[in-house]
Design a protein around this nucleic acid. Structure first.
Length: 497
DNA sequence: AAAAAAC
């Protein structure tokens, strides 16, 4: 073990300890907190971004406590400096940007999670069996943070491993099955995504004995794990509204008083307001987690200023993690805009894509449920394996479609925004935006269904005269991801500014 | 603006 490694180990377990460091340390930490707030608010320290404020602040105290001019002191200082350089190098290499106080070092291998954070060897084996060999950037930084019990807002591109970034620490932190009731809750915007996360947790925790649960029917839920039931689950995955429904029964059919971790996946989506929006539901779930030690983590590929502001104001000692630039499309997708003139032109162009040969499977996004139905009826007689999915279909139909698509039995899947976020289908070769997305955020999520985990993908976006108002913002996203875009789409407004 | 989300 070299000196760097030694210091890494020292740093990994470093926690701020008031009793050990006394009053002075309390004042220092207060100053440090103010410092970080200034930075987070975009103050004069903005240039510190990504430089990595780390555990070394507690090492500083060790150094301070040593006699001045001692040999030990100067060598500690030097090692600290070298270690910090190494950490900064790892962060910049993987485009990891962190904001916050006392951020633990990133981990470079899954094995480190076992040695430093007591991740069970069986979970490690499950990772290997799943073909996962080394952590992605968001995993490198978010996992140590959650292992230290830090509340965080993590923003990382589509298909970059966010699900694993929160599933692993949940399993490692809960350590082993306990009969305490739900200790971790994961919230997703759609049932399909909740189901996918649930399956991921099952796969990772196989052989460890954790009890992971997903609510299938809220009406059966009360019996299954209500107050009378003695079967206690450790982890729950759900969409928010059924939790709200169960929580407000009298007496409540769910007990969230033992919840230690609340993970909000696709957090910007779940922060959408309006009277019937997700935001109110989320608030009700937050409120039900009455335990004193509840920690919250927010994940998404896109982040609104609104979410960030909320996290800054409400989370305890927030750390925000950004991988690469925020709100950008992945560069592993070859993106094209295709002018099709009119509505009619879309169907002609679509038939052309099918006729001239394409590599299935492909996902076709439309803007509404009715549009999905209509397009399905146009294509169902073409002699290709086409299916359609949206929220007006029965849960049984939705499940069947997702399963068949995963099994490769469907070549063309027509869908609404239902499948736009989080879904991880292996090997989608083409995303076709049949209807123009209504925002660049939606565009980023839709095309993120392909080009995942380092694989290549393709996306084609149809546009007509009517789509011109939003064309520029999407064209900018495409250009930023390194794909060619006609100049007239971007240039015009900037020149006149 | 639509979609999603309980029974």
């Amino acid at each position: 073990m070299d000196a760097f490694e030694l210091f890494r180990k020292l740093g990994a377990g470093a926690k701020f300890d008031l009793k050990r460091f006394g009053q002075d340390a309390a004042r220092d930490s207060l100053l440090f907190a103010v410092f970080c707030l200034t930075e987070a608010a975009g103050g004069p320290l903005k240039d510190m971004e990504g430089s990595g404020i780390t555990w070394t602040s507690s090492l500083d105290r060790k150094i301070q406590n040593l006699p001045s001019d001692g040999k030990e002191k100067s060598s500690l200082k030097r090692m600290k400096h070298l270690h910090q350089e190494k950490v900064n190098r790892i962060r910049s290499q993987h485009r990891i940007n962190v904001h916050g106080c006392d951020v633990p070092d990133p981990v470079s291998t899954f094995e480190d999670l076992q040695s430093e954070y007591r991740l069970s060897p069986r979970v490690l084996q499950n990772l290997k069996d799943a073909g996962l060999t080394s952590p992605t950037p968001v995993q490198m930084q978010a996992i140590p943070l959650m292992m230290h019990g830090r509340e965080l807002l993590a923003c990382a591109p589509t298909g970059s491993g966010k699900t694993l970034a929160f599933c692993l620490p949940l399993l490692a932190q809960l350590q082993q099955p306990a009969n305490l009731g739900f200790r971790a809750v994961v919230i997703s915007p759609t049932r399909e995504l909740a189901n996918q996360t649930y399956r991921e947790l099952l796969r990772l925790s196989e052989g460890v004995g954790f009890r992971v649960h997903i609510i299938e029917k809220a009406s059966l839920a009360a019996k299954k794990y209500g107050p009378q039931s003695n079967k206690k689950y450790d982890i729950l995955v759900s969409t928010p509204n059924r939790l709200v429904f169960l929580l407000k029964q009298d007496p409540p059919a769910l007990d969230f008083s033992s919840v230690e971790w609340l993970v909000v996946d696709e957090s910007d989506k779940l922060f959408e307001g309006g009277k019937t929006g997700f935001r109110e539901q989320l608030a009700a779930v937050f409120l039900a987690c009455s335990g004193s030690k509840v920690r919250r983590a927010f994940f998404s590929a896109t982040c609104t200023p609104d979410v960030e502001q909320w996290c800054r104001l409400n989370l305890d000692n927030l750390v925000s993690v950004n991988i690469g630039h925020r709100n950008t499309a992945v560069d592993s997708v070859e993106q094209k805009l295709l002018f099709v003139g009119t509505e009619n032109g879309k169907l002609v162009a679509m038939r052309d894509i099918i006729k001239t040969g394409f590599l299935p499977p492909m996902l076709v996004f439309v803007q509404s449920i009715d549009r999905a139905r209509e397009l399905f009826h146009e294509l169902v007689y073409e002699g290709i394996n086409v299916e359609v999915i949206h929220a007006d279909r029965t849960q049984q139909q939705r499940d069947n479609v997702v399963n068949s698509f995963r099994a490769g039995k469907i070549w063309v899947l027509i869908c609404t925004a239902l499948l736009a976020r989080g879904m991880d289908f292996k090997g989608v070769n083409l995303v076709l935006n049949y209807d123009f997305p209504t925002s660049s955020v939606e565009y980023i999520h839709r095309i993120g269904r392909t080009g995942r985990a380092g694989h290549q993908g393709k996306a084609i976006t149809f546009f007509t005269e009517n789509d011109k108002p939003l064309l520029r913002s999407i064209a900018n996203v495409i250009k930023q991801a390194g794909c060619p875009v006609p100049d007239y789409m971007i240039g015009f407004k900037k020149i006149h500014r």
